[in-house]
Amino acid sequence: MSHQGQTTLDIEADLEVKYQVDITNDIFNPENPLLLKNVDRDRPAGKQLVVLDAALSDVYSEPVRSYFAAHGVDVDVLEVDSGEVNKNLDTCLAVVDALESSGARRQSNPPIAIGGNVLIDVVGFSASIYRRGIPWVRVPTTLLGMIDGSVSAKTAVNHLGNRNRLGTFHPATQTIVDTGLLVSLPERHIVNGCGEILKMALIKDSRLFSLLEEHGPALVSSGFQEAPAAEVITRAIDGMQSELRVNLWEKDLRRIVDYGHTFSPPIEMAVVPELLHGEAVAIDCLFTALLSHLRGWLSGTDVQRIARTMHNVGLPLDHPLFYDLGMLEQAMQEARLHRDGNLNLPIMRQIGVCTFTQEVTKDELSQATALLKALANSAGEDLPEIAAQH
C-alpha cells in the first residue's frame, strides 16, 4: 500500500516450536542415552559444554565427566554459583564466554544446563542471545525446576532489583527430568517445590490438591521417592504444559498460571535470599485464597485446608511484607504494568477452579491481611473458624 511516497509492507511469518520433555531414571549411567540425544559426535571440533550448579559440584561433577568420557565426548564443565543474588547479567556473560571458548555451534552440541531454576533460567537466557539464539538442553535438579521450569519457554535474569526483568522466550530443545536427582536435595528445597505444586493444584486440579493434602509430609520426608510421587509430579507437569502450550508466547495476558505471582514477586526480591521462590508463591496463593473467601467464593473450610496443607509440608504461611499494604498495592501496580494495564489477578472460585478479577480494594487487602495473621498465628493447628465476610 502506497500514499504520497509512503509504503507499508505487511509481513507475517509462523514460528514452529517443537521440544521434548523426557522423564527418566539414572541419567548419568552411561547406558542411559538421553544426555547424548543432541550431541553431534561425528564432528569432533569443539567441546560439549555443561553448565553445572556449583552447589552440586561434589555430587555431580565427576558423574558428568565420567558419562561423557565413557562415550568419547570431550566436555567442558562450567560451575556457576546459583541463587537469586547471582541471577544477573554478569553470570549470563560468564556463560556466554564459556560458549565462545568451547566452540559452541549454531545448531549441534547445544549446551546442557544442570541445576535449579535459577541456573536454568540464566543458561537459557545466555543461549537465547548467543549468536542470536542457539539450542540448549536443561536438566532440572530441583523439584521446583521439574514442576515450574520443565515445560516453560521463558528465560530471564534479574535486573535493577526486579525479578526476571530481562528475558526472552527460548524453550530448551530437550528437558530431562530424573526424579532420582532429588535424593541429594536439601529438604527446604523439596518443600520449596511444593509451593508450585500447590499453585497448580489450586488453579486446575483438585485431585492433585488432595494428593498433596494427604501425602505431602511423607513425600517431603522421602524426597519424592515414594508413592504417589510419580503421579504428583506428572500431574503438575502435565497441568503446566496444558496451560502453556496454547499460549506459549503469552499473547494472552490472562494466565491462570500467574496465580501466586501477583503479590509475591516484589516481596521475594525485597528479601532475597530470605524467601525462596516457591515459599513466596505459596504465601501469595494463601493470601489470594483469602481474597476469594472475602468475596464469598471459597469456603472457610477450604481456606483452612490450604493453610493446613502448607503447614504440614513445611511451607511458611506468612511473611511480614504480606502485611504491608503499601507493598501489596505496589505489587498490583507492577502486575498491571507487566500485564499491559490490566490486573488480571487469578483468583479461585473453588479448589481446582480459577477465574480473574481486575480490581482489589484497599479494604479487601486490609481484611485479608487480618485473616492471614490469624491463620499464621495458629501455626496451621486448630485454625480459627473464618466467618464469611460477604
Score class of each variant (00 low, 15 high):
residue 21 V to T: 15
residue 191 V to E: 13
residue 190 I to F: 00
residue 342 N to G: 03
residue 181 L to M: 12
residue 3 H to A: 12
residue 35 L to M: 05
residue 192 N to S: 12
residue 383 L to M: 14
residue 54 A to R: 14
residue 233 I to V: 13
residue 351 I to N: 06
residue 145 G to L: 05
residue 45 A to T: 11
residue 105 R to N: 14
residue 124 G to E: 09
residue 164 N to P: 02
residue 267 I to S: 12
residue 155 T to K: 03
residue 239 G to I: 12
residue 193 G to H: 00
residue 244 L to N: 05
residue 178 D to S: 11
residue 131 R to L: 10
residue 299 S to E: 04
residue 187 E to M: 13
residue 25 N to S: 15
residue 196 E to A: 09
residue 337 L to F: 06
residue 59 V to H: 01
residue 205 D to I: 06
residue 306 I to N: 04
residue 28 F to V: 04
residue 264 S to F: 14
residue 239 G to H: 14
residue 72 G to P: 06
residue 201 A to L: 03
residue 184 S to M: 02
residue 356 F to P: 06
residue 320 P to F: 13
residue 133 G to W: 01
residue 293 H to V: 00
residue 14 D to R: 04
residue 172 A to Q: 08
residue 54 A to S: 15
residue 82 S to N: 02
residue 316 P to Y: 10
residue 320 P to G: 07
residue 57 S to A: 14
residue 216 G to Y: 05
residue 128 S to V: 02
residue 280 A to P: 02
residue 90 D to E: 11
residue 69 A to K: 12
residue 81 D to N: 10
residue 29 N to M: 02
residue 79 E to Y: 05
residue 138 R to M: 15
residue 199 K to W: 13
residue 321 L to V: 01
residue 315 L to P: 12
residue 199 K to N: 07
residue 270 A to H: 10
residue 118 V to Y: 11
residue 51 V to R: 06
residue 270 A to V: 08
residue 119 L to E: 10
residue 220 V to C: 04
residue 302 D to A: 04
residue 147 I to S: 01
residue 211 L to K: 08
residue 158 N to H: 10
residue 207 R to S: 12
residue 189 H to C: 06
residue 347 I to L: 15
residue 263 F to V: 00
residue 240 M to L: 07
residue 216 G to L: 10
residue 141 T to H: 13
residue 37 K to D: 12
residue 377 N to F: 13
residue 262 T to N: 01
residue 75 V to I: 09
residue 299 S to H: 06
residue 10 D to Q: 02
residue 59 V to W: 00
residue 373 K to Y: 01
residue 20 Q to C: 13
residue 322 F to S: 04
residue 129 I to G: 00
residue 244 L to G: 00
residue 245 R to T: 06
residue 161 G to D: 00
residue 67 Y to M: 07
residue 84 E to M: 08
residue 207 R to A: 15
residue 66 S to H: 09
residue 351 I to S: 11
residue 84 E to S: 15
residue 9 L to N: 05
residue 32 N to C: 05
residue 330 Q to V: 08
residue 316 P to R: 13
residue 47 K to L: 05
residue 47 K to D: 03
residue 112 I to H: 08
residue 94 A to D: 11
residue 26 D to A: 15
residue 63 P to K: 01
residue 283 I to K: 10
residue 131 R to F: 03
residue 226 E to L: 07
residue 13 A to N: 03
residue 366 S to V: 02
residue 321 L to Y: 07
residue 86 N to S: 08
residue 159 H to S: 05
residue 13 A to D: 02
residue 67 Y to S: 02
residue 172 A to G: 06
residue 48 Q to E: 14
residue 298 L to Y: 14
residue 309 T to H: 00
residue 22 D to C: 07
residue 132 R to P: 03
residue 59 V to C: 00
residue 275 L to K: 03
residue 205 D to K: 05
residue 264 S to C: 14
residue 255 R to S: 09
residue 149 G to H: 04
residue 259 Y to V: 00
residue 282 A to F: 12
residue 364 E to G: 01
residue 287 F to S: 09
residue 74 D to E: 09
residue 251 K to M: 01
residue 77 V to H: 13
residue 342 N to V: 03
residue 242 S to P: 01
residue 370 A to M: 01
residue 314 G to Q: 05
residue 218 A to R: 14
residue 376 A to D: 15
residue 181 L to H: 06
residue 340 D to C: 07
residue 37 K to E: 15
residue 383 L to F: 08
residue 374 A to Q: 14
residue 55 A to K: 00
residue 15 L to N: 04
residue 83 G to Y: 07
residue 265 P to R: 13
residue 326 G to W: 05
residue 385 E to M: 09
residue 145 G to H: 06
residue 347 I to T: 11
residue 10 D to R: 11
residue 38 N to A: 12
residue 4 Q to W: 13
